[in-house]
């Protein structure tokens, strides 16, 4: 464990608390893509069912991410269902899941169910934010709290990059699948980060140019 990874994980934790806070305080899941949230459940379930014991920290985090992502689906689907507008959440997820299944079958460290699922989850995570970003693009604006959620989520994978560089020099390990997918994942946030830093951080509303 190094600081980059720790702060990455903390940023991931923070993003979930920000999202819950947004849903609770506005009593609404407006502006949140149900599809992206459902993809995260698929990501965590397929990655964390390996039951390999690493550490208490690792196990607790895994349980938390599975539990909280399912809980968010419950909030969106049942508790605050009327506040979700499916007509703007129109990204076709099958275009993401299909290729990720294929990539997982082709690129993995061992051709076993657990390892293929692990690779699949890494690839799927890298693109799971697309329905959310697509929705943002369609509406052209977002509540500030929603942008904080996205920024924390983006910072999580961004912080994993210096972590991998650090691990390469200190442990001599490289995980090419995670690194490739992680770079793609972080790259997808670049446009968002640009608007976030130039507008939201300056106290302005998140609005995309028409």
């Amino acid at each position: 464990m190094n600081l980059f990874r720790l702060f990455g994980d903390l940023s991931h934790l923070a993003s979930i608390f920000i999202l819950l806070h947004k849903i609770y305080t506005t009593r609404s899941c407006r502006g949140i893509s149900f599809k992206t949230q459902a993809l995260y459940v698929a990501v965590f379930v397929s990655r964390y069912i390996d039951f390999t014991y690493i550490s208490v920290y690792n196990t607790l985090m895994k349980l938390f991410f599975i539990g909280s992502s399912c809980y968010i689906l419950y909030l969106m689907r049942i508790k605050y269902r009327p506040t979700h507008d499916p007509s703007i959440d129109t990204f076709r997820v099958e275009y993401l899941v299909g290729p990720c299944v294929l990539l997982g079958l082709i690129f993995n460290y061992q051709f076993t169910v657990i390892e293929v699922l692990w690779s699949f989850s890494i690839f799927l995570e890298s693109v799971a934010i697309l329905p959310q970003l697509f929705m943002l693009q369609r509406t052209g604006e977002a509540e500030t709290i929603t942008t904080h959620y996205l920024a924390a989520l983006g910072a999580y994978r961004a912080l994993y990059i210096p972590n991998w560089i650090y691990r390469y020099f200190t442990e001599g390990t490289v995980d090419p699948i995670a690194v490739t997918a992680g770079l793609v994942q972080t790259g997808l946030y670049l446009d968002f980060f640009y608007v976030y830093f130039t507008k939201v951080m300056q106290g302005q509303k998140f609005e995309l140019p028409a």
Binding site: R5, H12, F65, W118, E171, D175, P176
Partner: peptide
């Protein structure tokens, strides 16, 4: 270089 074993990252 080797691949980290056991996927210790989240």
């Amino acid at each position: 270089t080797e691949v980290p074993v056991g996927h210790d990252e989240l």
